[in-house]
């Protein structure tokens, strides 16, 4: 673990938390300072998505689109066609929720490096309810040729991911969450698009997690160790392209796999890992995530507990595989 310079005691009660989207806001501002071709557009959610940092610094490079998500991404396509590096943001439920065909045709098939930023993904959006809890975004974006799909694990990583995307020539989807999320990585933690990282080495079972679920996976692994299960935690911030090598190396060692995500397992990270394993290295697999159903209103903690998305549920899955 020391190789990755993770936050010591990140799971203690007074550990620092911050919404993942805050890291995006800082990363975009930073990317904007480094490259004047970085531009931004938003669909009437500039503060919520944290694009306001960029807007305030570079008002002439920011476009307020209004509540029009189809226009958001197609304007992005036009900006990219002229050499800009556009970041376009809204809530994930609306973008890429509403504008999939425009993303497919004018960004992916048209090969324009637009960065689609979907904030407030997952059930942890909480009280807003099922309409606003985007769970299908990973599946929707992962199926598109040319598209990079990322779900950073904390705000520090989101900042790095944003800066990395600004230098990447591909279309990309960046998934962000609303709620304050424990900070598990530091500035020194390595990050590269397309790489998964073994944050906790183990030999009994591989836990592959993305987004804020990596925190839950690390907490689970820590407790499992005390209970006699040596779990390996693979943090997978890039869901596409999937880091097949890191995942397969781990599974070849453990032979048992749990995937963890805050979204539909169908077509999500769970789907991606299932596809990889069935072709390359069949292994026992349990997928933790939303199981073909919608969310509902509640507090984030209530909902994560209700839908089985906590460290406790990961531990139960590990026991069922290993015991």
């Amino acid at each position: 673990m020391s190789d990755y310079h993770l936050v010591p005691n990140f799971d203690s009660k007074d550990a620092a938390k911050e919404p993942i989207r805050k890291g995006f806001g800082r990363g975009l501002l930073e990317a904007g300072k480094l490259n004047e071709n970085v531009v931004a557009a938003c669909a009437d959610l500039t503060d919520s998505t944290q694009m306001s940092l960029f807007k305030n610094e570079f008002p002439d490079r920011f476009i307020e689109i209004g509540v029009a998500e189809q226009n958001l991404v197609t304007v992005g396509s036009g900006l990219a066609a002229m050499g800009k590096i556009p970041f376009v943001s809204s809530y994930a439920a609306f973008s890429p929720g509403r504008n999939w065909e425009q993303i497919r045709t004018t960004i992916c098939l048209n090969d324009q490096p637009v960065k689609i930023v979907g904030s407030h993904a997952g059930v942890s959006v909480g009280p807003d309810g099922a309409t606003h809890q985007m769970l299908e975004d990973i599946a929707l974006m992962r199926v598109l040729p040319n598209m990079v799909v990322m779900a950073p694990g904390d705000s520090v990583e989101a900042e790095k991911a944003t800066r990395a995307l600004a230098k990447d020539s591909r279309p990309a989807y960046l998934r962000l969450a609303r709620e304050a999320t424990p900070i598990i990585t530091t500035d020194k933690t390595p990050f590269e698009i397309g790489k998964a990282y073994v944050y906790a080495p183990g030999k009994d079972v591989t836990i592959i997690a993305t987004g804020a679920m990596t925190y839950q996976a690390l907490v689970a692994a820590h407790k499992l160790y005390v209970q006699g299960i040596d779990a390996e935690v693979v943090h997978c911030p890039t869901i596409k392209p999937l880091d097949n090598v890191t995942i397969l190396n781990s599974v070849k060692k453990t032979g048992k796999v749990i995937t963890v995500e805050e979204g539909q397992i169908n077509g999500g990270l769970g789907g991606a890992v299932a596809e990889l394993l069935s072709e390359e290295h069949p292994a026992l697999l349990k997928r933790i995530g939303m199981r073909d159903r919608f969310g509902e209103s509640g507090s984030p903690d209530e909902l994560l507990e209700h839908f089985g998305l906590t460290a406790k549920h990961i531990m139960l899955a590990a026991h069922s595989l290993v015991d």
């Binding site: 476009i63 197609t74 304007v75 396509s77 036009g78 066609a81 002229m82 556009p86 065909e101 004018t106």
Partner: peptide
């Protein structure tokens, strides 16, 4: 790239803004 209708004017707007 076009075929699915209704996206060209947005792309034009994006290019014009750039």
């Amino acid at each position: 790239t076009s075929g699915p209708l209704g996206s060209g004017l947005s792309q034009a707007a994006g290019m014009a803004l750039a």
